[in-house]
Structure formats: C-alpha cells, structure tokens
Design a protein around this nucleic acid. Structure first.
Lengths: 245, 245
DNA sequence: TAATTATTTCGACAAACGTCTAAATAAAGT
DNA sequence: ACTTTATTTAGACGTTTGTCGAAATAATTA
C-alpha cells in the first residue's frame, strides 16, 4: 500500500504538468472532483484549479492530501484499483491445501522419497542441459533435509490462489516438500513456483500423465529436486499422515 | 533511472518531516549543502532552511530541484550512488521486455485492438462458463481505457523473471496492455498473471498455435479481456511504436 | 428539451513560500 | 589552539499559493 502511494506521489510530482498528473490518477481511480472536494472539505473549484495547473508550484501537502483522498475514496467504494493490495493483506480461503505438516525432526529427502514410492523423472536423470546434474550430485541433494510438507490440489491452487496465498503454503519454513496432486503435465505448478519469490526445497508431482519438458527445465533452473509419485491422492495423504512423527 | 527518481521524490514527499527526508537522501548521496547550493545557484542557508523544515508546505519544484541536484552531482562524481540504488530497486536485467510505453492520453481497448488486428478467441465469445460474458458485456469492457503497454517475450519472461520482475512490467500504471510474444498455448503467461498480485487491464497473445482452455478460463476469472493477434513480432512492435502518441 | 450535476474560469485576499543577507554556531582540518 | 569550512538561525520582503465564492460552460440524466 505504502509502496503504491510512493509511486503515485512520485509520478505526479515528476509530471511535466502537475495538474495533468493529478487528473490522470483521479481518472484511473474513477473518482469525481466533487467527491474529492467533499472528502477534503474544499470547494469543487479548488480541485479544478489544482488539475488546471492554476498554480505553477503547489505545495507538497496539496499533492499528499489529493492522493490520500483517492485511496480513501477507493476504499469506501470497495475499490478495484487497490484491490490487489487488499488481497495481499487479507489472505483468502486455504481450501486448495489438502494437508500441511511440520515434522518433529528433519527428514532426509531420500527417506521421504522412499515413503511415497517416489521416483525421479527419466529425462531428469539423462539430461544434458545442465552438465552438473550427474548421479553424484543428485544423490547429494537427496541427502538434504526437509522439515515439513504441504499437499496442494494443483487445479484448485492455480484457479483460486494468488501470490500471497502461495506464501501461505510454506508454514514456518520453506525447507519443505511441496506436493501437487492431480497434476497432468506439471507445467502450471512449476511456472507458479517460478514466478513466486519463495521456493520449496522439494517438489513432488502426483497424477502425472505426461511430464512437461519445460516443467523439468524450470525445476533445474531453480535447483529444486523434482519427484514423481504414482500413488493415489488418498494413499499419498494416508502415508504422509502416518509418517515422520 | 527515472524510476529511482520517482522513488526518491515519493519517499521525501511522504515523509512525516519533509526536511528530514531531504537530508536523509543528501546523506545517502554523500553530498554537502554547499555543493547543492552552488549547483542550484542559491545561498547555502536556503538549503539548510529546506532541511530544517522552516516552511511547512514547500512547493514541489523545491523538491524536484533538490533531487535533481543530488542525481546530477552524483553523476559528476562517477555515479556510484545511482548505480547502487539501481541494483536495489531494479535487481535484474530487463531483457525479456521488448517494448514499454506510456501513452500521452488514454486509449480505448477497442481502438488498441484495431491497431494490432487483434481478435477475441472463438471459445471466449461462446463460453457458457461465466454467463455474464455475453456480447454486450464484452463490448462494455472493450470500451475501457488503457494508459500504456508492455511487450514481453513470453519464453524469456517465464525463464528469467521472478515475482518482483513481474511488477516491473507495469511502468507507472497497471491500466495497460500486457502483450506476450511467441506464446504457443498461452497457459504459462496466464498462470504467471494468475499468481501475480498486480493485474494488467488487457492481455494480448502473439504467436498462438493452440490456445489453451485453461488460459481462457483464467482470463475470465481475472476479468481481463484476452486478445489474440496474428501479426509477426516485428510488425507488432512497429505498429505499437508508431501508435498512440 | 429541460433539469441536474460536474467542471472551469476568474477576481480577491490572507497566509505562506522562496530567497537574500548577516551573524552565530558546529564540525573538520592543520 | 587556531583556521577553515559547513551548517544553522533569524529578520526582511517580494512573490506566490490556497481557497472562497460567483458565474459561466460542459456533460450527463430524465
């Protein structure tokens, strides 16, 4: 919110014509001069004077109060303009999460892999794109530890979650497995991880019909081990529920 | 560079004490009051008055000239502070962006659509999923206005950008067209928009071979008009460059 | 077409700004 | 300790801002 305000104010102050800058943002927020005047307890002609550039060097308080009014009035209108920011501040439904668990002690990825009958994708093992991805290095990374897991229905997640929601997948640590069920190709979940700022330690796909090449490549770029399991959703949830305690 | 200036100016104007805000940035740039005074052809006491908050509501030109002097004097001294700030505020390469433009005045989406020979996807028009998506409502939304556009190579964008980079696509307003080139199915770009906090006003796909159904559905959920263009990348960039001035 | 609402234009005026100059104080350098 | 440089403080004054209110114009609605 504050960051957006800094950008709006900075943009207006640096406009070649301050008045036009004010008007531009008022139009973006879809608010009338009369509404702003009422909010600020000013005559409507004052707002028109501002936007017409009657004064060549308005004071900074004028700009601040004008921008404040845009934001507050937008809020009152259940405002779309700052809706994305409001979404960030108010987490929405967690329904796409099927199971989330923090472990009492860290678990090695190789043990996790065994518990869910997971396997590395075939072309992951034979990949020549990243020459460092040899057997020895994969073994090294499978020795890494995780502290929890989150199971997500990937279809629901992609449809219902936004950036902030994505952060909520991580519990208290990102050192965890992120498990996507009903995946199909795997591209969408991996793209979502790609654009997210926070990365899991391990990604597991359940329900793969055809593993997408870009998904594999993105996993490599992110340096995240990618595992496939052929268990059903119920069986997977059961195994996870009764393990790692 | 301009972005840094917007950030500095916005930060100063929104400071609880403008004078302290000015001083903070002067100290960051490691420049003396006397240097600023010389640059601006003012008496040194004037700069001190500014920073001491002698006047409660200084004019925007005062702030602009002060910040200009910081930037210009830093440039003369090798630009070290500017370079450091660029790293902080804009960490990675902007290479995936092919073109970014702010319009001098708002453009109707319908006019934009005509300029790039854009069309609505077939199943978008006939879709029954969202019953409100009838011809009349689509026409209404095509009357909406945009204030700029960003053209992005979608393959490079997905591979090289993270969440913060995605915000950089928006210039100074989200009321813009986001144009993805070399799209193929369109699913990845639309997923990326899905998980991003900030949404464009309009999405354009270039280079579509098979339009993905999920991409269309995501556009509807986000309430973002989705347009397809058959122009080549070069032709598209050319048309955009020479339009909307 | 007429009524209503929104915006623009402009004169007026009290308050505040922008800047100078002079003198004092603080900080840095020798 | 002394000198030099940087910064602060305060009085003064011409210029500009912020705002009101009235009237006119433009846009929207009935």
């Amino acid at each position: 919110m504050e960051k957006i305000k800094v950008h709006i104010v900075g943009d207006i102050v640096l406009s070649k014509k301050i008045g036009k800058g004010l008007k531009k943002w008022r139009e973006i927020f879809n608010i009338s001069q009369i509404e702003i005047a009422r909010y600020l307890n000013l005559s409507p002609s004052v707002i028109s004077d501002y936007e017409a550039g009657r004064r060549k060097n308005p004071g900074v308080n004028t700009i601040k109060r004008y921008v404040d009014s845009l934001i507050e009035l937008d809020k009152r209108n259940g405002g779309h303009t700052i809706k994305a920011l409001q979404k960030i501040l108010n987490p929405s439904s967690m329904e796409p999460i099927l199971q989330i668990k923090e472990y009492k002690s860290p678990i090695k990825i190789v043990d996790f892999l065994n518990a869910i009958e997971g396997e590395l994708p075939i072309n992951y093992q034979n990949n020549n794109i990243n020459k460092t991805q040899n057997t020895q290095e994969i073994d090294e990374r499978l020795k890494a530890q995780i502290f929890g897991h989150t199971v997500v229905d990937s279809v629901k997640a992609i449809l219902e979650m936004n950036g902030q929601d994505f952060l909520n997948l991580y519990g208290w640590t990102t050192e965890r497995a992120l498990i996507f069920t009903n995946v199909s190709t795997g591209r969408s979940p991996m793209v979502a991880i790609r654009v997210s700022s926070i990365k899991p330690r391990l990604v597991v796909f359940q329900g793969v019909s055809y593993l997408d090449r870009l998904a594999v490549k993105l996993a490599e770029i992110e340096n995240i081990p990618l595992i496939i399991t052929k268990l059903s959703v119920d069986e997977l949830l059961d195994r996870l529920k009764n393990s790692f305690d």
